[in-house]
Design a protein around this nucleic acid. Structure first.
Lengths: 154, 154
DNA sequence: TCCAGACTTGAGACGAAGTCTCAATAAGAT
DNA sequence: ATCTTATTGAGACTTCGTCTCAAGTCTGGA
C-alpha cells in the first residue's frame, strides 16, 4: 500500500505541472502501489478491469509514464519483451538478478555499486537521472536442475 | 575489422553445434565487425543490401541471435525501442552511459563494478551469464544546454 | 565428384507491445 | 453554474521482431 506521503508526492507533482488529478490517475496509482513486484501494463489494466474499474489501455500506458516521470515508479525491461513497472520505495535504489531458467527476479541493493556509478558519472561529466543494472543468469535452484535455459534478452 | 581469431571462434562455434557455415552468416559477421558502434538489425540489413549483398530480414535477425549466442556480439536495449547490437572485443566487459539529451552512448569499464557484481552473485548463489548496466542522464554537452530532455527508456 | 538429407534462407504473413487520433468527457478556475 | 482545456476511450495504426513453409544450399558419405 502506498504511504500517504507518496500519494501527496504524486498530487504535488501533478499540480506543479498543471496537470489534473483524475480518477483514473488515482486508481492507477493505487493499483501499482498494491502490487509489490514487477508488473506489466497489460496485467495492471487487466487487474483494474477485473475489479470493476473502467479505464482504457491508452490511459494506463499514458499514466504509467506519468508515474515514472514523477519518480514514483520505475519502468524497465527485465524480460524478453515489454516493460515491467514497479513502484518505488522512497529513495531505495535497488537492482535486479533475473533468472533465465525460471524467470524469477531477485532484487538486491549494493551501496558499493551506487558509489562507483556516481564516480564514473563524475569522471565523464555525466549527470545521471536513472540507471539500470541487471544480471541475467541462473538462480541457485535452476543452476542445479539440468533444465533448458530460456533465453532472456537485455 | 574482425581479428582472424574471432572469425575462427565463430566457425568453431558453428561446427561445434553442427550448424552450417553459410555465405549469409559470414557476410553478417563481417558486417557487424565493420561497425564500431551500436547498431540495430534494420540498419545492418540496410547496410548489407546497399552494398549489393542479398540477405533477408529474417536471416539477419536469426543470425544476429546466433552471434550473440556465440559470444561474439552483444544485444541490448539502450534506447527507447528495439535492440542494438555491438560486436565484442575479446573479453572486455564494458557498460554504457546513455545521454537522454542527444542519444550519445559512451562506453566505460569499471573493474570495481565487475568485482561487486561477482560478489553479489556469489551471495545469492546465482550463476551469471550476462549483465547490463546502463546509466541514463545528460552528457556534459547536454547538461549545459537548456535543451528539452528526450525521454529514453530503460 | 555426386547425392541425399538436413539445415538455411527468403518473402510475406503474423503477433506483441505500445502509440496516436479525435470526438466525447470531466477537472479546475471564475 | 459555466467555461476552458486537459484527459479519456476505442480502435486504428506503427514498429519491431518472429513464424511459416516452400525453395535453396551446405556437408558427410558413397
Amino acid at each position: 500500500m502506498a504511504d500517504i506521503r507518496e500519494k501527496e508526492q504524486f498530487l504535488r507533482f501533478l499540480r506543479d505541472r498543471g496537470q489534473r488529478v483524475t480518477g483514473e490517475r488515482l486508481a492507477l496509482f493505487d493499483e501499482i502501489f498494491s502490487h509489490h513486484d514487477h508488473i506489466d501494463a497489460e496485467a495492471l489494466l487487466e487487474a483494474m478491469k477485473s475489479r470493476g474499474l473502467k479505464i482504457s489501455r491508452a490511459t494506463v500506458y499514458r499514466n504509467l509514464d506519468l508515474l515514472v516521470e514523477s519518480g514514483l515508479a520505475r519502468k524497465q525491461r527485465l524480460t524478453g519483451r515489454g516493460y515491467l513497472y514497479e513502484h518505488m520505495h522512497a529513495g531505495q535504489q535497488h537492482d535486479h538478478l533475473v533468472c533465465t531458467g525460471c524467470g524469477r527476479v531477485v532484487e538486491f541493493v549494493s551501496p558499493g555499486i551506487v558509489a562507483l556509478q556516481a564516480e564514473i558519472c563524475r569522471a565523464h561529466g555525466f549527470v545521471p537521472t536513472r540507471h539500470t543494472l541487471q544480471i541475467a543468469g541462473l538462480c541457485n535452484r535452476c543452476a542445479q536442475a539440468p533444465s533448458a535455459e530460456r533465453t532472456v534478452h537485455a
